[in-house]
Design a protein around this nucleic acid. Structure first.
Lengths: 250, 250
DNA sequence: GGCGACATTGATGTATACAATCAGTATTCT
DNA sequence: AGAATACTGATTGTATACATCAATGTCGCC
């Protein structure tokens, strides 16, 4: 039973949840496919009870859908669903930015955000951006958004944004960028970085409306990018969770 | 074991979830209080497994919070959390209204919405509004918002709005309005009804921005109303889930 | 008398055994 | 031959038993 060393601290339920989420997001299970509990038991190596808990959590998370007759299936999303989710997240982050601006944040609170910005700058400065640098960027970008969200100081909003981000930006643990798409991706990163700088500035100057607007614009950039990516079938890895789209040529 | 007749079709898990949610929202358990599984077993009459499932679902729903050492406790909210949740929902419904307006809806789709509006009109027209009429209004209002949300034709957004509504507008099954607060409540209902009419008109005329703006304003009305209610300690039942607020005099 | 360590108790997390329900298939009747 | 029904297989929903962990109370030692 306790075969792995590092995972020994986490509960079986969490382990099963992570394993199953990875399996779904990496495309191991097709959208619409029924997920058998026994099969999940074999895959994860834990018992049925924690597997069932994990399935319930993943359903609430939105990755699974309950079958009326019993059991769960992988939820299928349309391309538009993903685009809507991006706009949804942008709207929520816009609200968070406005809250932050209106409620005021100390210079000290903005410190980690600016530091994050600088680290991203260091990455995108190198012109032929490396695959490793891009991977680092993905992590840093996630951190920036998380920090920004936190600045709203509104737990319900933070929670909702986390949920909204789950779908369009969820990524399997192993995530690498395709080599060929790197130059184009870098261009997008530069624009995104501009947005980041604007929103920080707006929050600092207590301009709630401007802060909100730029985050919405930021989301529109991501949506446009995804639409382009889907059309050209290029750098599809830029936005994960594409394994969940029912038919990409819809 | 199957003692009740009407509930025989629903699963034990769902029954436990409903019972526990009612218990929490009706104030049977104080915020921050630990919820024992065995105690829940006794209360609901079902076994531990479905009770645990229900607890997990309620945690994902946001009513419970996991204790690091194990188990769950009733989540505590500040007054501001509830106010933020209302604004949050308004923002999301604004997005839904905009989607509906931009994507266009047929006259046939608007039919049930308008019918709902007329039914509400019939209720608020009577000047000393009765308690029963107010209860009907609560249900009709919920239906109006649900229908409006559906018009966005965006499943992810609908889902998110449902989640956002859970906190501020969740109501225990038994919900009655205090007699003394009825006149004031009616005034609010009249303004709300105006908002409803405007948003339907905006959607019909494809004015996305106006549709979005009015829903936000609508939310601000609800927030203002709640703030007033909390201050005056009057018609506190107008917005439920107040049992979850840690200290109302915060 | 106070502090610390140990034991005991209670709870939760996990595993497995049982029951009920649903799907699929074969057989029989019209 | 087609359709309906009964049967069988499997899978999920439920219950309970076990193990592990945290909390608390007591006893002993300093």
């Amino acid at each position: 039973m306790a075969d792995r060393e590092a995972d020994r601290a986490v509960s079986q339920t969490v382990r099963a949840q992570l394993a199953l989420r990875d399996l779904i997001l990496s495309g191991g299970l097709r959208p619409g496919e029924r997920i058998s509990e026994l099969q999940a038991v074999e895959t994860t190596g834990v018992s049925r009870t924690p597997v069932r808990m994990a399935l319930v959590r993943l359903e609430e998370e939105g990755l699974l859908e309950a079958i009326p007759s019993g059991g769960f299936m992988v939820k299928a999303f349309s391309e538009r669903d993903i685009l809507d989710s991006i706009e949804l997240r942008g709207t929520l982050e816009g609200l968070a930015a406005r809250f932050a601006a209106e409620r005021g944040v100390s210079a000290r609170d903005l410190e980690p955000l600016k530091e994050c910005l600088n680290e991203i700058d260091d990455l995108v400065r190198q012109d032929p951006i490396s695959v490793e640098a891009f991977s680092s960027y993905v992590a840093l970008n996630a951190r920036f958004h998380a920090l920004l969200t936190e600045l709203s100081r509104s737990p319900p909003l933070v929670r909702q944004i986390d949920r909204a981000s789950a779908l369009p930006f969820a990524s399997p643990s192993g995530f690498v960028m395709a080599q060929s798409a790197l130059p184009e991706a870098r261009q997008i990163l530069l624009i995104a970085q501009d947005h980041h700088r604007v929103v920080v500035d707006a929050i600092e100057n207590r301009e709630g409306a401007r802060a909100e607007a730029i985050m919405r614009e930021h989301a529109r950039l991501a949506a446009r990018n995804l639409r382009l990516a889907l059309r050209n079938r290029t750098h599809l890895d830029l936005l994960p969770a594409l394994a969940l789209i029912r038919s990409a040529a819809d």
